[in-house]
C-alpha cells in the first residue's frame, strides 16, 4: 500500500481516455442511435398514415360502388318502364288495327251480301218472267213490263 508516480500517470491516462470517449465514441454511437430512433418513429407514423389513407380509399370506393349500383337500378327501372310503355302502345295500335280491319271486312261482307241479293233478285225476276211466259205461253215483252217486273223484284 503506497502512493507513487503511478497515480499521476493513471490520472493522465484516465483524462485522455475520457477525452477520447467524449470526442470519438459517445457522439458517434449515440448520434446514429437517435437518428435510427427518429427514422423508426417516422416509419411507424407513415405506416399509420398509410393505413388511415387505405381505410379512407376503401370507404370512397365503397360509396362509389353503392352509387353506381343505385344508378344502375334506376336505369333498369326506367328501361322496364319504357319497355312496358312500348308494349302497351304496340298492343293498343294492334287492337285499333284489328278493329279497323274487322270493320272493313264487315263492310265488305255487307256489300257482297247486297250485291248477291241484287243478283238473286234479278235472277228471281228473270225466273219469274220465264215462269210466267211459260204459263202464258207467250213471250212477255220484257221491255213493256219492266216497271212491273222491277216492282215485283223489289218485293222479294
Amino acid at each position: 500500500m503506497h502512493i507513487n508516480l503511478t497515480l499521476v500517470i493513471q490520472m493522465a491516462v484516465f483524462a485522455v481516455l475520457i477525452w477520447f470517449t467524449m470526442k470519438f465514441v459517445w457522439p458517434m454511437v449515440l448520434g446514429p442511435m437517435q437518428e435510427r430512433e427518429r427514422r423508426i418513429a417516422q416509419g411507424l407514423a407513415a405506416a399509420g398514415k398509410g393505413e388511415e389513407e387505405l381505410r379512407q380509399a376503401r370507404e370512397g370506393a365503397e360509396s362509389i360502388l353503392r352509387e353506381a349500383r343505385e344508378r344502375a337500378g334506376v336505369i333498369v327501372d326506367q328501361a322496364q318502364r319504357s319497355a312496358n310503355e312500348i308494349l302497351e302502345q304496340a298492343r293498343s295500335t294492334a287492337t285499333q288495327e284489328g278493329q279497323r280491319l274487322l270493320a272493313a271486312a264487315q263492310q265488305q261482307i255487307g256489300l257482297d251480301a247486297a250485291r248477291a241479293k241484287e243478283q238473286l233478285r234479278q235472277q228471281v225476276g228473270s225466273i219469274a218472267v220465264a215462269a210466267a211466259a211459260k204459263l202464258l205461253e207467250r213471250e212477255i215483252d220484257a221491255r213493256a213490263h219492266e216497271a212491273l217486273l222491277n216492282e215485283f223484284a223489289a218485293q222479294l
Binding site: 500500500m1 507513487n4 508516480l5 503511478t6 493513471q10 481516455l17 470517449t21 465514441v25
Partner: peptide, 25 residues
C-alpha cells in the same frame, strides 16, 4: 519503503490499465 514516493512507478498497473484502456477505446 515510504508510504508516498513519487519517484517509484508500478509498471504492471500502468501497463495493464493502458492495455485495457486501448482495448476499451
Amino acid at each position: 519503503t515510504s508510504l508516498v514516493n513519487f519517484t517509484v512507478i508500478d509498471y504492471d498497473t500502468v501497463f495493464f490499465s493502458v492495455l485495457l484502456a486501448v482495448l476499451f477505446a
